[in-house]
Simulated assay, not measured.
Amino acid sequence: MAQVIFRRATRADVPAILALLDDDEIARSRAAGPSPGPDDPTAGALTPEAVDAALWAAFEAIDADPRNELIVADAGGAVVGTCQLTFIPSLSRRGAERMTIEAVRVRGDRRGHGIGREMMLWSLARARERGCGLAQLTTDKRRADAHRFYTSLGFAASHEGFKIGL
């Protein structure tokens, strides 16, 4: 297997990232319509901008924002994982910046090979580089495997989260 490197996503990575984000039942239950899965031959094809301009606008906004980093795990040119890091200034915790980790995914055929752990450790090192005092994430209550994974990395289920669709 090719060595995995972690880097900022480029525009060319967006279709693979979207396939990763849609590659589970919980994500599909939230989506308005299905996207190609990672085994679909069209998954690697560039998503035409006319299909969903909002996704491209979101990528452009993330890419242009110095407080957001869309990260990919790259194995020999193939995107095998992704996460988004958001750095948030705060008056709490004595003004320390915090990092929120979102949309953590590893391609189905690469799960269980340590890529998720490497990506999370890389992300935590990135937070330390920026001087963050806290890293936080939320995970769907139905993701029991993810809960065990995050606990094994030292995260504590210290807060109850709430969301509302708008």
Rank of each mutant, 00 (worst) to 15 (best):
A53F: 04
A53Q: 14
A54D: 11
L55K: 05
F59H: 11
E60N: 08
E60L: 00
A61S: 11
A61C: 08
I62G: 07
D63G: 14
A64Y: 04
A64I: 08
D65E: 14
D65Q: 05
P66E: 07
P66A: 02
R67K: 14
L70E: 06
I71S: 07
I71E: 07
I71Q: 00
V72N: 11
V72D: 08
A73V: 05
A73W: 09
G76A: 13
G77D: 10
V79Y: 04
V79F: 01
V80Y: 00
V80E: 01
T82I: 01
T82L: 03
Q84W: 06
L85R: 12
T86Q: 10
F87H: 09
P89F: 04
S90G: 12
S90V: 02
S90T: 07
S92K: 02
R94W: 06
R94Q: 13
G95Q: 10
R98E: 12
M99N: 03
M99H: 03
T100H: 15
I101T: 03
A103D: 12
A103W: 01
R105Y: 07
V106A: 11
R107F: 00
R110G: 03
H113K: 13
G114N: 07
G116A: 09
R117E: 11
E118C: 03
R130F: 12
R130G: 13
L134N: 02
L134A: 12
Q136Y: 12
T139G: 15
T139E: 07
K141A: 07
R142D: 10
A144L: 09
D145C: 05
R148H: 14
R148G: 15
F149I: 02
Y150T: 11
S152I: 01
G154Y: 04
G154F: 01
G154N: 09
F155M: 10
F155R: 01
A156D: 13
A156P: 06
A157Q: 06
S158C: 06
H159I: 07
H159Q: 08
H159E: 03
